[in-house]
Design a protein around this nucleic acid. Structure first.
Lengths: 104, 104
DNA sequence: TATACATATGAACATATACTCAGGTGTTTA
DNA sequence: TAAACACCTGAGTATATGTTCATATGTATA
């Protein structure tokens, strides 16, 4: 008696592209450090730049991408702009990746 | 009475680079489709190539990278090589990304 | 209003990445 | 052992990506 083969489920290209795009947001060392910092608190561009060790311009470029993907939210307060993560699902997804690296 | 500020936790560059590397594995449309298929069953290179719609060579290149990262495991059976994912944490991490795209 | 400050933007450039092509390795079968 | 099959690999190429630099925009303050 032969096993019934599982139906081969192909993820459609459109969905796959979106999944890839989501994970790509987490695929750069600087962005990972930015996002990690933002999982615990709201921070402005200047502080993020110092933490990560890249220019404010570079940080701003990263944040624009993350904003467009709705992974971070900006809030202006005077001259400064504070960023944070609103989506808890994103925080946990990102956190799982960090855990996997840290604790195998 | 002022709030005690949270200590600013900077993720060290080495760890961040590894986290980025992990997520980078999921950051390409073809790899996402390959990995998605492998979350439910073991498949060989030829079948994966047909499913994803790229050459066997391209699939093989992707699988090499995934193998080096220990995200997939190869098993030879005669002329064919079957791939699968062993790490359940990787399956769920990847699955969470797919869920986020599918169901917001 | 003029200046300083904080962030954003566009262009340019160097590096990384994914794919194809040609050829190579390992395994089975005629 | 020769041919066929399945997969792997390295080189080459086109495109994508991250950063810096120069400059622009928005906000507060002298």
């Amino acid at each position: 008696m032969s096993e019934k083969p599982l139906p081969v489920t192909v993820l459609d290209e459109h969905t796959a592209a979106h999944v890839a795009e989501l994970f790509r947001a987490f695929s750069d060392t600087s962005r990972v450090r930015i996002l990690f910092a933002l999982t615990t608190q709201e921070l402005n561009v200047n502080v993020l730049a110092e933490m990560v060790g890249i220019s404010e311009s570079a940080v701003s470029h990263h944040l624009r991408g993350l904003r467009q993907m709705k992974l971070v939210v900006a809030r202006r307060e005077g001259k400064e702009v504070f960023y944070h993560i609103e989506d808890n699902h994103i925080i946990s997804l990102f956190g799982e990746g960090v855990k996997h690296v840290r604790y195998g």
